[in-house]
Structures are given as C-alpha cells and as structure tokens.
Design a protein around this nucleic acid. Sequence first.
DNA 1: AAATGCTCCTAC
DNA 2: TAAGGTAGGAGCATTT
Length: 982
Amino acid sequence: ESPKNPPNFPQIPFNPPKPPPNPPNSPKFPKIGHSVCLHLHGFSPYFYVLAPPGAGEAHLEPLERELEAALRREQRGGNPKFQPPKNVLGLTLVRKQSILGFQGGLQSLFVRVGVSLPRLVAPARRLLERGLRWGNLGVQPAPPFEANIDFEIRFMADSGLVGCCWVELPPGGFRCWGALRGHPPEGAWLGLPPLRLLSFDIECAGRKGVFPEPQQDPVIAIAAVALRQGAREPFLRVVFTLRSCAALRGATVRSFESERELLQSWAEFVRIVDPDVVTGYNIHNFDLPYLIQRAQVLQVESFPYLGRVRGVPSQVRDSAFQSRQLGRREGKVVTSPGRVTLDMLQVLLREHKLRSYSLNAVSAHFLHEQKEDVPHGIITELQNGDAQTRRRLALYCLKDAMLPLRLLERLMTLVTLVEMARVTAVPLSYLLTRGQQVKVVAQLLRQAMQEDLLLPVVKSEGGEDFEGATVIEPLKGYYDAPIATLDFSSLYPSIMIAHNLCYTTLLPPGGAQKHGLGPQDFIRTPTGQLFVTPRVRRGVLPRVLEGLLAARSRVKAALAEEQDPERRQVLDGRQLALKVSANSVYGFTGAQAGRLPCLEISQSVTGFGRQMIEKTKQLVESEYPDVQVVYGDTDSVMCRLKVPSVPEAAALGRAVATWVSGHFPPPIRLEFEKVYLPYLLISKKRYAGLCFSGGSGGTPKLDCKGLEAVRRDNCPLAANLVTACLRRILLHRDPQGAVAHAQEVISDLLCNRIDISQLVITKELTRAASAYSAPQAHVALAERLRRRDPGSAPGLGDRVPYVIVSGARGQPAYERSEDPVFALEQNLPIDTRYYLEQQLSRPLLRIFEPILGEGRAQAVLLQGEHTRCKTLLTARSGALSAFTSKRSSCIGCRALLPHHGAVCDFCRQRESELYQKEVSQVWHLERSFSRLWSQCQRCQSSLLQDVLCSSRDCPIFYMRRKVQKDLEAQLELLRRFGTPQW
DNA sequence: AAATGCTCCTAC
DNA sequence: TAAGGTAGGAGCATTT
C-alpha cells in the first residue's frame, strides 16, 4: 500500500509526469503492474533454549506463566501504557542438536519459545538465560539458541525466500499469513524487476565560511532524476527552486516563493514517483537529515512521510558502525520504510579503495569526467542573484543528482547488490548497513534448519590470535625469465570441504572415546584439532560451501550459453557474489568478536594451508629440477621456468599444476593462472611484472602489487613516477629511459615545477584525535582544521588530504602538514626536499637497485646534476615575497633597495630590457591562465559564464589558481617600474 | 645509530 | 547491539 495521503497532507496543485507504464507482456519480465511494499506484520519470532535435565511436557505450562509474568513486569517498568495482549505465544518441546561440536547423533531436548513481537525476544531470552522457575525443577538457567537471529533473516529462512527474489501474489487484494510464494532467481525469474530509482541532490544557502546548518540555512534547490532500472535514460528530471529560475532544457523547473512549499512539494513528488530505491551522494549523512531537520524547523508536518508505510514517518537517527574491515564510522541513518536508500558514497566506501571519495574525484575516476565544485559562499551568491544565476544553480544541482545514477549504472551496483542478496539470502538493505557476518549467519541458519541443528548464542570473548598463512621467503631480484604463477583457487573453502571442517564435526578432547570412534573415524589437523570424517557426519559448513561452488560452476556453464546482455550481467554478478561469499566463511569462523567463532576451524584451515604451500614448493622443485619457486603467498607459488617463451611457460605451468593437484584431495586443485615476463620481486607482498593472463596471446598488462604505485598513502607524484618507471623497465624494456624520466621528475620537483595536486598525500582518520598515542601528520592537520571550521572539518573515517610545507630545521612533519588549498592560497612554500627524500627516493631506489645495482642506482638517481637545480624564478614569483619582504630588491640584480622602485642605480641602464622581460612573463602567464580558464568553462559546459569551481580534487583547479596568483604577483612587480619614461 | 611501537595500507 | 581473518612492508616519532 502506498500512502498517497499521509496525515494532514495538504494538496498542492502539481502534475509531474507519471512514470511510464511497464512494457506490456514484456518477454523479459513477468507482467507487473505496481511496485508493492510488503509490510511484514504479525510475524511471530521465536527462539530456543536448552531444557535442563529432567524437563518434560509438564514443565511448559508453569514456565510459560512465569515468563509471561516476568515480561509484563519488565514492560510496565519501561512503559506503563504499553499492554500487549499476549507476550508469549507458546512453548513447545523439540528434539534437536546444537551445531557446536560433534554430537554423535544424539538429540537434546529444547524448548521453542514463541513470542508475539520481535522486541520481546531479547528480554525473554535474558530471563530464561538467567533462570526462571521450571515447576518442580526449581529455578533453572537455560542457555539460549538462535535468540540473536535478525528478525528479517528468521522470516526469510522460515518462508524460503532469499533477498531480492520474485514473490508471486494473487491478483487483486491479498492478505497473506505465512505462505508467500517466492521463486528461485533462475530461468524466467533471473532478471531484475524494472525498479524505479530516484536520485536527488540539495543545495543550501550557507553563510560564508561556515558549513550549512539546518537550524538556520535554507534549502534553495532540490534536483531529482528518476530512472527505471535497465533503461538508458531517466524518465524524469525536475528541479525544485526557491524563487524564480529560468527554464532548463530537458528538465522541469518548479519554483516556489516559500521554502515550506518547496519542501512540501518535493515530499509529495517523492510519494507520487513512489521510487523503490532512493539514491544520491552522501544523502545519508547530509541531504536526507538536512531536509528532515529543516522541515522540522519550518514545521512542515507532512514532510517526513517519505516511506511507503502509511503513517510511519522517516526518522533521523545517529548510528555508529564499526568493523575491522571498514573501520569505525559514525553518521546518521534516515529510515524510510518500504524504500531502499542507496547512498552511492556508502557503496563506494564499502566496495572501492580510493584516494578521495568526493563526488568530484569519484566522477573523474569512474566516469572520466570532471565536475564543477562550487563553494558554499558562491552558492548563496547565485541564489541572491536573478533568475539566470539561479538557473545556473539549478543546473549545477541537477548534474549532481544525475551523477549518482551514472555511477550506479557504470559500476553495476544494483545488479551486484541484488545478486549478493540472492546468494547470501539477506535483504538488500543489509548489504548497505551491516557487516560480513550476517551473510554467513543467514546461510548457516538455513542449512542448519534442514538438519535440525540449532545455532547457540555465544558470548564473544576476545580470544587469542591464531597463526595465519605462510609467505614464502622471496628470492628478490629482477627476472628476465618467465615466471609461472600457480594457485589454489578458493583455497580455504576447498580445505574446509576436503577435510570436512565444521562446527558439527569438531571432536572435543575425549570426544572420540565418548562416542566410540576409532582412528579411521576422524582426522587430526596440522594444528592438532580432531574432526570426524564425512562418513561419520558431513559438516554443515562444507555443505554450504559445496553449494556455493556448485552454483558457481552452473553459472559458468550458463554464461557460456547466454547471449542476452542483461542476463549476462546478472550471471556475472552472481559469479562474483558466490566467490566472495565462499571466501568469507573462513573469516567468519575466525572472527574474534564474532557471532559464532570457532578458532579450531580457522586454525586448522590456515594450518592445512601452510602445509600445502610448503608441500607444493617441495613437490614442484623435486619433480622439476629446472623449476624454482622464487616466491609464494598463502595459496600461490611463483615458479621460475627455464623455457624461453610465454606459451611454453604456460604449457609447462599447466602440466606442473595438474601434476601437483593429484597430490591433494578434491576439491583442492592447483591451477595455472598466468605468466610474468619480466618479473621484479622486491620483497614479501611487493612485486611487479608484465602479466600474460592465462599465458596466452592477449595484450600483456603491467601488474603491480604492494608497491607505492598501488598505495593510497603517498602522493600521486610518487605513485605515478613509480608506475611510469615500471612501465619503461618492464613493458618497454628501457631502463635508461626510466632513469632519465625519474631524473627529470626529480628536477621538476626541486625546481617547483610540479603541480601541487601531485603532492597531496591522503590518509584516513581512523579514530578520534584523542585516541591516537603517536602524533600523525593527517591527525594534527584535522585538528587544526577543526579549529578553523568545525562544520567542514574531516570526520571519523574521512580521508584527510595534506601537503608538507617548509618549516624550521628539525621540525617534525606532523607540524608541517597543511590543507593543499590553504597552502596554495597562502603561498606557503612546499618542502620539496621532504618530497624527494621521503616520498620519491626510497621507492625509486627499491625498484632500480635490482636492475642497476646498489651504488649505481643511488648515484644515478640522487646525486646527478638534476638534483642541483634550484630555480631563481620561484624565489620571487610567489606573491609572498612581494608582500612579506619589508624592503624590495632590485629586479635586475636582487640587491636590496632603499626605495620601492624596480631597479637599483646600476641596473637603471637596462631597465627597459628588464621591463620587457617581465611584460613577456605576464603575457605568458595570461596565456596559461586563459587556457586553463576555458578548460574549466568546458567542464561546466558553458563558455559564456564565469568559472566558479574550486574543486580540491581537480588538478586544473590548482593550476588555475596558481597561475592566477603568479599573474597577480607579476602584475604587482610590473607596477614597481612605474610609468616608463623611455 | 639502532631498536621499538604506532599507524596506515596492502596481499592473500 | 554489532563488529570477517593474519602477514607484512614502510614511514615516522620516540626511546634506548
């Protein structure tokens, strides 16, 4: 049911175009009329407790009375008005097994506790766990099982639904209790439904230098773009503006004189478009909370009904999320029942490692186009102008609403998420808000249910760390011979399958005697744990993993046949989801603060892994004396082969892999992956090579692991230079060219010819400033920025960009970190020595030393003529020198002058010549500036309007500002000549 | 000068 | 309440 008329919702005359109808009887999709939001009502959750010894049918009734009474007492305490009709829906005795530990087929007695509301699960569990009266057995504690399963996961597992699957409903009205008919996402039910996506962006009129706050600063524009999933073009583009706005081509403009009307109208628009997915960039932490808070301030009562459930308003809540993988993040969550809010920023933070996550940087990276970035102050100016300046604002806003949709499409975000939801059986929203564990829990629960196994509620205590994988000691150096890479695909999942490692197969100490098992019934893992063989009991985890691997082979086969591009996309997405999903099971078992940790399993898995890589190296080297394992990490070995060509290396690699595979139990297999030629091995986890994937004819690709080229915590100059040198060495096989290039870049750096954007280092703020025990450059800067303007300062989880500026001798780097824009605007001098010595020299030496030799690399790179370049130009070109020096110096000979003129008496005779030189410098700067300016105009797609952009993620911006400032300084210099007399 | 601990980010 | 794992290189400030 879609709430067309929430309480007190005023009717505003407004007729946006209706979404286009679905294609009639489209062969691709089943016939669908509407999006339907199923609001889950009246589903009763349940959990289990282990019954104490001696418990039976007779104990259930008194126990239920006890539990009911205890729950009522608790609730009266919390909320006297709340009086649910019934808390406990029923207790029943069931015979099942705990999943934890081999049980020898013995079932235990459990009580299934059904309660009427999800929020009763936690207190009921606590009461039973602590101990209630079990009739004549007295007060007995009862350990809970499955009391920590998420409500939606419980429901879906019970109904046999997976995330994002098709559900068939009877035509006309329906009221469904329990039996929903979900279709497996295959065949006719493989595709995605034509979901409606709505992307939006807001603009606020902030005050100068302060980040906009909803208490004070009005919303002046909201742009919205609606797209049907799978369609190429949006079916709707609308901009809502405060005050008049000139027409936009291809978009509807709706102007309002009052902000209240603007907000009301937008909310109504959302309800009419009725999107399934609401997207945008940073809408979670900015746009949505801002709108809702602003509507509160303006008392627009009807506004927050943005969801699909009648009478349930969207709410802003603070949220904190913390995981080892994603770090700690805090922010706001806006609820919107019935719609998925898909913040592209959150998606990118989870899925992609980038230097910067500004919409700007992201557009440049994924869409290869720059976007304007207009500072807040100027936004307000545009708003205060006329219909034309507000048109510009509207267009800017519209573009920002458009970009998330384009990112969504380019990154295939929706398909990827839908497939992950289908494979792991969780709702799509979980993938955006929750961690990795819940996906494994969902799968584990479903498999366990089939085998009458229950998941215990464990209190996670921080256990001890366990030993991980082996990294083979690298034989460092430069190899001009083919290196074949062999690896165990899905190593950890296949270990778990091959050795039947599972919660259900783990034999505790003494378990063998207890269950009367002989030596042939169990195995001892390399770390000493005992697990029963599949003959005794097949594990649940291996079953889940086998299912995932088997599904993967089916998808592979289907992909070979499938022609339809959209279905192919779905299958691709599924393949990825299956792989990722299988690989996360091991991590789940080892998760210290986990839902169901079992270090015996994870330890054994890595133990087997260590044994295997060691054995592989030995097997290979003893069977093939001409093959040498030069390196290996976890599941791979790099083999140096004494064959001349890539195809021969591939053939030999395949033979070796097949032969080695025979020495391991299925489904463990060693596979030939690729050939490197040449190969540069720097150290553990750091190498580069020219990669021939599959060892065949395709174009080889430069592969670079762990080196500065692929790290985000150095400046782009270092990363780019390392990449460029590696390309020259490995791809073009031109080490001399690489050296020359490196020398040139070093020279450019020392002569201040490197653009500041190349020197920006970014690092993540992983915790609150006070939680750091060691000083850090980015943390110190973040603190300084916070003092300058708390609203716009970097928050937890943000990446902080900085440059290192010159300072006093011996001053630590953390005191010299500075905001790049600030440094540019204030003409703070960059510490080029720092960049050479701390950012470039060591990475360069590391890659050149294996080729040139130790001494030579040092001499050639760091001691040549190019390191002595010190320009005179920079010394005075900055505006700084013009304003800070108390006395001016002669433009000809730099001698101090007693006056503010241009030249000293000695240089007076060449004054005309010097003047001409400075004038030509002005021309030169003007030409550069005009080139950059028109480049920025092209970016804003208007050659007629001023450039307002100040994107700190665009190199052109830095260059433009630099030239502009140099030009100003140069003109100032020119003024010192006065009116020429000659 | 060398060793050490903290921090970040990557490989797998 | 919820939160996948360990190995490992490198930079940097501080201590030894």
